[in-house]
């Protein structure tokens, strides 16, 4: 099946290893990615939306309209892009007067939002179109009971009125897909806590992230698995900052879901860019006999 990938800003520049992991791993489960020229920032659901909501709708609608020309659904791989494109796509489909206001602007560049496709996070496509069983069948080197703390992040699941992916209070989707790689998804009291990245006052996200890291450290997990580059920022790079700032010692590797899947399909750690992470996952790779 054909899908139009929307990788956004962070995954194409700051974390290209995630884009590489998606492209490589989904090719083994029958997903064909059709690239579209001319996408811009989704735009950013926090600060751009805070600046001017109508302009936020407009830039997002322009991006969606490019995919509509080809007639395939957009798959998103960043929770921020998911938040923006899913909400704008749904709201503009539902609200005729807003759609007209946005289309009047898009007319300036000869584009129109039609409302003819859907926007879905890539893991939703794995579950619903491909099937967890088929994902499991693509695994050649099961991740031998690797204990992975699940981190859902906010924008895959909420607002559920828009996302319609899973129960936001009892999600299963990422658990099922982690199990498909042979790893063991581990839940804890703060599995669904936000990473706090959007807060202006640093002390709020600092304490949120430390509480999550403290909790999963006590659980004895080997790494954290997630699906959002912003959450990754909060737990990987920031883990080093927090260790220094608050005299902590964590060293918990943070791994994007499609990197886990890629490893299980037989890609080398370097091929999915694990060597680019601040917290090196070498101990778990040794455990999986993936490092010389």
């Amino acid at each position: 099946m054909k899908y139009i990938p929307f990788f956004g800003c962070m995954m194409t520049t700051k974390y290209p290893q995630f884009e590489a992991a998606v492209r490589k791993s989904v090719s083994h489960v029958g997903m064909e990615l059709v690239d579209v020229e001319g996408f811009t920032c989704c735009p950013d659901p926090i600060y751009f939306q805070a600046r001017d909501k109508i302009e936020w709708y407009t830039i997002a609608a322009r991006n969606i309209s490019l995919a509509e020309d080809l007639g395939h659904d957009i798959i998103t791989t960043c929770s921020g892009c998911t938040a923006t494109l899913s909400e704008v796509n749904l709201v503009l489909k539902e609200d005729e007067s807003l759609r007209k206001e946005v289309n009047d602007r898009l007319k300036e560049i000869g584009r129109e939002f039609k409302g003819s496709i859907n926007v879905r996070h890539a893991i939703t496509v794995l579950r619903d179109d491909i099937g967890v069983d088929k994902v499991a069948q693509s695994v050649k080197y099961p991740l031998n009971d690797l204990k992975v703390a699940v981190h859902y992040g906010c924008h895959l699941l909420k607002p559920s009125r828009v996302m319609r992916v899973d129960d936001p209070d009892r999600p299963q989707i990422l658990d099922a897909l982690i199990k498909a790689t042979g790893a063991v998804p581990v839940h804890h009291d703060l599995t669904l806590l936000c990473c706090g990245k959007a807060c202006m006052d640093d002390s709020i996200p600092d304490r949120m992230v430390m509480d999550i890291l403290d909790t999963i450290q006590e659980k004895g997990v080997e790494c954290m698995g997630l699906i959002c580059p912003t959450c990754f920022d909060s737990f990987d790079v920031k883990q080093l900052i927090l260790e220094r700032k608050y005299n902590k010692s964590y060293s918990i590797p943070i791994i994007y879901y499609f990197q886990l899947l890629g490893l299980a399909q037989g890609y080398k750690p370097q091929e999915v860019g694990l060597h680019l992470h601040k917290i090196k996952p070498d101990p778990i790779l040794k455990g999986l006999e993936l490092v010389a």
Binding site: M10, E19, A20, K24, C41, P43
Partner: peptide, 27 residues
């Protein structure tokens, strides 16, 4: 963030390091 999107179309900057990493990863 707004000005970055307005002036460059994106919120993150590209660089020769980004280009090199993308190439290494087969992108």
């Amino acid at each position: 963030i707004y000005n970055s999107v307005l002036q460059t179309g994106t919120t993150t900057k590209s660089s020769s390091l980004v280009d090199r990493r993308r190439k290494e990863l087969g992108l």
